[in-house]
């Protein structure tokens, strides 16, 4: 290294300090939620607040599972998110493959059609969608959320996946077609394995978006047996007397899977976004 020793040391110290302080700032809110979920209501209401639960209790978790039927909400969230992210990736794969591999009239219009959806404020269509959904008799159904979430993510999936397809050399599928695969078979048997990391990252990103979605869920789900986790949390917030302990226990449960998926997939999500460039 040609950098002078002292200068380099100073740089390293600054770097470590900056990185560590930022890490603290990022992690503190998570730590706060986490430790609160193990506190008693009395402990929670104290000021000055304590930074470790004393006594350490599991009551908040026990309460949300026993009183709030949280197990059911988790199942609802899991099934809605799984189905919707699977569907949007599948539909996205079909469309993006064609958009990446063929030149045809109206191709840029299709791309615009998807890009514009990202700029429309989602709440604009809410009232019309509400009337539509109640007319179809689709209120309080998890299927409704599955459809809406799929639709919400189709543009993102299509555009991101197109970026991944573009990286695959054409020779690969030409070889597959000579081999006798038809186009769709070539897509799923030959190209898909190559872009699988990107596809799984897209799937995980979509899953987390569905898992986190609040407003549609609040609008279209009123019956508590169909609650997803965010709706359940929202109903805890709306109560006159917010039960922070239970709320943070629910929040911790809802955060863990998304964090796990993102930590795993972030690199691919970023490269997908850099390539296809839609929204965050």
């Amino acid at each position: 290294m040609k950098k002078s020793g002292a200068k380099h040391t100073v740089y390293l110290i600054v770097k470590v300090i900056v990185l560590l302080s930022f890490l603290t700032v990022v992690l503190f809110p998570f730590y706060w939620l986490f430790q609160t979920s193990f506190k008693t209501p009395r402990d929670i209401a104290q000021f000055p607040p304590t930074y470790l639960p004393n006594p350490f209790v599991w009551d908040n978790y026990a309460t949300i599972f026993r009183m709030q039927n949280f197990g059911r909400y988790i199942m609802n969230s899991v099934s809605v998110s799984l189905v919707a992210s699977f569907m949007c990736v599948l539909i996205g794969l079909l469309g993006s493959y064609v958009l990446a591999r063929f030149d045809f009239k109206g191709k840029s219009k299709i791309l615009m059609f998807y890009l514009i959806t990202q700029m429309i404020p989602g709440f604009l269509g809410m009232a019309a969608l509400y009337t539509m959904i109640s007319k179809f008799g689709m209120m309080d159904k998890l299927t409704t959320l599955m459809i809406l979430y799929t639709v919400m993510l189709i543009p993102y999936c299509t555009i991101t996946l197109r970026g991944f397809f573009a990286q695959v050399p054409r020779a690969l599928e030409e070889a597959a077609q000579i081999d006798g695969c038809n186009r769709v078979a070539a897509l799923f048997r030959v190209i898909l394995p190559v872009i699988l990391p990107g596809v799984s990252a897209t799937f995980m990103f979509s899953f987390v978006q569905c898992w986190n979605e609040v407003f549609s869920a609040i609008m279209y789900i009123n019956r508590s047996s169909s609650y997803t986790i965010p709706v359940a949390l929202n109903s805890l917030v709306l109560k006159y007397d917010v039960k922070w302990g239970e709320l943070s226990a629910g929040a911790v449960i809802s955060i863990v899977p998304s964090i796990g998926m993102f930590a795993f997939a972030q690199k691919y999500i970023a490269s997908g976004l850099v390539n296809g460039a839609v929204k965050g």
Binding site: L23, V26, L27, N212, I255, A263
Partner: peptide, 8 residues
């Protein structure tokens, strides 16, 4: 770790 906020 610093990605956490992005996921929620």
């Amino acid at each position: 770790s610093i990605c956490f906020p992005w996921a929620i």
